[in-house]
Each structure stands twice: as structure tokens, then as C-alpha cells.
Design a protein around this nucleic acid. Structure first.
Length: 425
RNA sequence: GGAGGGAUGGCAGAGUGGUCGAAUGCGGCGGUCUUGAAAACCGUUGAGGCGCAAGUCUCCGGGGGUUCGAAUCCCUCUCCCUCCGCCA
């Protein structure tokens, strides 16, 4: 959610940002400004009416205290119509405010000036490359390898739960556990505080990070208890500080959290969802920052290079893209995607997405920080995956496969795995 | 799951219909004293909305109601505590 003040002062830049993001109708900005205008007028009117009523009530109280009962009764008799007026004003105001906020919620975050303006994924800017995107014809897609070995059981997953809920068996189960531990250990060394959040959240939290009202179809729901299965650790971890005033001195706050993630992914099909490409349940270590507004772009670069170092340590070929305006989400002001190379599929797979939200999330969640001088301002929030497991597993299986069918274990994982290769037994 | 008791400012804790945005203590900040510190003393100290400002409105767990007037009365929800039951 953007600051209404910003809309009032710089409506054109907000509209430009919307157009750049590919929104077709920037008139919502004018509508929001108008709605705000009428809300403020109504509030002013209500406030002065209330001031009057408060004054009368006070006078009545004084008369009663002085024992001037008849005078008080006379005043009370006159309060009737003022009361009616207040009631209708109040009703009007809550619907005006709701209208304003609904409009405001439809306005996306404005892209940062450093974000390339674009219309398609081709306009995303590659900013970093590491390793080869090779084309060796003998390399198989990961799903062939893991099914041959019985390391991932997609069929039984379908039987027990449904498509997109595979079983990981033996070496791959172990590999995933090793990755989680490696990611958490590395994050701890880099100064992140580890958090184990709840895996289901209530409605307020889902609203806080913006999953509802817009994207509720992405989440699995526990109907009886009105919980939502988290689609990412971002939801519980960012909501950790919802409605809080932090101290500026404790910023930056850096959290890492491992959680499973559940996504309904309605409408996905074909090669997009083959193997580990897109699952309904997957594991991820998420990184969340809360920083001073002045530091957020520096923090984004730090987050980006941290995630890059993770992928590099795994010895995987990958690239980093600076996402163009059209390929950014609703809430982001700047975003980098990291994509690993899948030699078996001859395509790039997104494994991390590092974003700065500026104060867009913080405003909706009311996460603020108080400075030594007593001033309070919204924090800036950022997050990034560090990393999402399935596609990393896919890339390891494909990039580390040997002509004889063995999969070598990346050196940083060997101590966790207690082996240097996954072999067909 | 059953019975009872609670929820007030950073914390503790008063307040059962009017002058209460709220006593008091602790903590925080500023000052006096001191070579410095502690102690003592004095002052100050919640958040948010609207407004150029003066000012004004809202907030005592959330929502709704009664009343001219609600922290205070009523309804409801949530959470916490105590006892019983169940339980990895």
C-alpha cells in the first residue's frame, strides 16, 4: 500500500509507475485521491460536530454536579437531533474510508528509478553470469534420473495426496535435509537470526502480506479453524513484527527461516510442472530484512550478493536478472531473480527472487521503528529466497550427473551428506 | 473439553457513569548538585487522524450496544491465568 500523501503530491509519477508495470488503468490514482478528499471532508465535519457534542455533554455534567437538574434536563432534551446527525455521519465515513482504502489497495508499488522499463521477460537485464550453460546431449532431465533410481516417488505422491506432492526417498531426502541445514548454517554465519515460524497463519496475517484479498486462490485453507497454509515463510516471518514499533537501533533485522511452502498453482500445466519444476509443496529457506528506509537499496545489493554466493558455493551455473518493470510483482519496487541452468531441460529455473518492498508492506502491516530522537517511521522490508529447494535439487542432479549415472555431491554438502556421490545401489 | 478469574500507557498498577487520555511507582529523557558517578531533588515522558495554524477528533484487548455523557453498564469475540479432564 502506497502513502496517500504520495498520491496527492506526485500523482503522475505513481501513474507512470503503474503503466510501466503493465497496469492498463491508472485512473484509479485519481479515484483514490478523490475518495480521500471526500473522506477528509467528512472527517472534518464529523470532528467539529463531535467537538460540539462533547462540549454539551461536559456542560451537562457540570450542571448535574452543581445540582442544577432542570437546566441539565433542558440541555439533554436538545441533544436528540445532533445525535442523529452524528450517527449518519459516522456511517458515511466508514464507507468512504473503505472506498478509499479499496482503491489504494489496487495501486501497485512504484518501480525504483534504477529498474529498466520493459514489456516482456526479454526486457529483464542479465546482470551476472556464473558457469556454463552447457548443451551436452547426454544429460537427462532430473525426473528421469530420480525416477530410475527410485529417489523421488511422484506416483505414490499422487496416490497419497495428489499431483505436486512427491515423496523424496533415500539419498534425495538426505540431500534436501543437507541443503536446508547448509542454508541455515550459512545464514547464521552471515548474521541472520534463525526463526521457526508456524506453518499455518490466520486471516490477519494473510492480509498483512497481501495474500488476501487478491491472491487467496494461491493458498491452501484449513476451513474449520480458518487457517491458511503458508505459501512462503515470508508470511509468518514478516508478520512477526506486525503492528509493532521497533527501535531504530536494532535495525537492520535479518531473519532466516526454513519452512515447507504450499501453493495451489491453479492453472499450471505441461512442461512447466514436470518433475520438480513446480510443486504444490516444497521446502525453502527464506531471508527477510527490516531496515532503515535510507538503507534499503544497499541492503538489496547485499541480499543479492549473499544469495549469489550461496549458489556459487554449490558450484551451480546460474544467472542473475534485474527484473524489468513489467515482470515485477505488485508489491515490489525492485527485484532480482536468480536462475540456475537445467542442462537436462535446456532452460533456466528460478531459484531465488530478491526484492525490496520499500515501505509498501510495512505500511499495510504497520511495522515502524522509533529513533532516538523519538521520531517514528515505517521500516523498509526486503526478502529473498536463500534458497528454494526443489529446483536446486533438480539443478544439482542435472549439473552433477556423470555419464555412468552417478550424481556427485557438491563439496560444501559432502560433510552433511557423509558421502561425495549419490550412486545407484 | 468443563468451571472460575482477568486484559488499563515501555513495565507494574489504581480507577465501577461526568472535570479521566487516565492516579501512583518503576523505567526513559532533560536539569540541579558533584572532579566524575551514584543517591537525592525539580521538570518532562503514549499512539494515531484531520488542519497552514489555532485547534480538534479517536484510541483503556477486538467488534457491537445502552446513555446527553462509558476505562467504568450490557452483548459478543479473541487472548491470558487458576483448577479439573485429555494429551506427544
Amino acid at each position: 500500500m502506497l502513502d496517500i500523501q504520495r498520491l496527492r503530491e506526485f500523482p503522475d509519477s505513481v501513474k507512470q509507475g503503474m503503466l510501466a508495470k503493465g497496469e492498463s488503468d491508472p485512473s484509479v490514482v485519481d479515484k483514490a485521491i478523490e475518495a480521500d478528499e471526500s473522506w477528509r471532508h467528512a472527517v472534518a465535519e464529523l470532528d467539529s460536530k463531535r467537538a460540539e457534542a462533547n462540549k454539551q455533554a461536559k456542560e451537562i455534567g457540570q450542571l448535574m454536579a452543581q445540582g442544577k437538574k432542570e437546566e441539565a434536563e433542558a440541555m439533554i432534551a436538545k441533544t436528540g437531533e445532533a445525535k442523529e446527525a452524528l450517527k449518519s455521519l459516522e456511517e458515511g465515513i466508514s464507507s468512504l474510508k473503505e472506498a478509499r482504502d479499496n482503491l489504494l489497495l489496487r495501486i501497485p508499488n512504484v518501480p525504483h528509478e534504477s529498474v529498466p522499463v520493459g514489456k516482456t521477460p526479454e526486457d529483464n537485464q542479465p546482470v551476472h553470469h556464473h558457469g556454463d550453460a552447457d548443451t551436452d546431449p547426454w544429460r537427462k532431465p532430473h525426473w528421469e534420473i530420480v525416477e530410475e533410481h527410485g529417489w523421488i516417488d511422484f506416483k505414490r505422491g499422487v496416490k497419497v495426496t495428489g499431483a505436486g506432492f512427491p515423496f523424496y526417498v533415500g539419498p534425495i531426502a538426505k540431500l534436501q535435509r543437507a541443503l536446508i541445514q547448509y542454508f541455515l548454517d550459512t545464514a547464521a554465519d552471515a548474521g541472520f537470526t534463525e526463526i521457526q515460524p508456524p506453518f499455518v497463519v490466520n486471516e490477519d496475517s494473510a492480509r498483512g502480506t497481501g495474500q488476501i484479498p487478491d491472491k487467496e486462490d494461491m493458498m491452501y485453507v484449513v476451513p474449520r479453524d480458518e487457517f491458511f497454509a503458508i505459501p512462503t515463510a515470508e508470511v509468518p516471518v514478516t508478520n512477526f513484527h506486525r503492528d509493532e514499533v521497533l527501535s531504530t537501533a536494532e535495525l537492520p533485522i535479518k531473519y532466516c527461516a526454513y519452512t515447507p511452502c504450499w501453493r495451489r498453482e491453479a492453472g499450471s500445466y505441461g512442461k512447466e510442472v514436470r518433475g520438480l519444476n513446480r510443486l504444490h509443496q516444497f521446502d525453502k529457506v527464506e531471508l527477510v530484512y527490516m531496515v532503515k528506509p535510507s538503507d534499503s537499496y544497499e541492503a538489496l545489493e547485499e541480499l543479492r550478493s549473499y544469495v549469489e554466493s550461496l549458489i556459487e558455493a554449490l558450484g551451480l551455473s546460474y544467472r542473475t536478472l534485474l527484473m524489468c518493470t513489467a515482470d515485477m510483482g505488485f508489491t515490489q519496487s525492485k527485484k532480482y531473480d536468480m536462475e540456475v541452468w537445467s542442462p537436462g531441460q535446456q532452460r533456466w529455473l528460478e531459484v531465488s527472487s530478491c526484492s525490496n518492498f520499500e515501505d509498501f508492506q510495512a505500511r499495510r502491516m504497520m511495522i515502524r521503528a522509533k529513533d532516538d530522537d523519538g521520531s517514528i517511521e515505517l521500516v523498509h522490508t526486503l526478502n529473498g529466497s536463500g534458497l528454494a529447494l526443489p529446483r536446486i535439487v533438480a539443478a544439482i542432479v542435472e549439473q552433477y550427473q556423470q555419464p555412468n549415472g552417478d550424481i556427485l555431491v557438491p563439496s560444501v554438502l559432502q560433510s552433511y551428506m557423509r558421502t561425495d556421490s549419490l550412486t545407484a545401489s
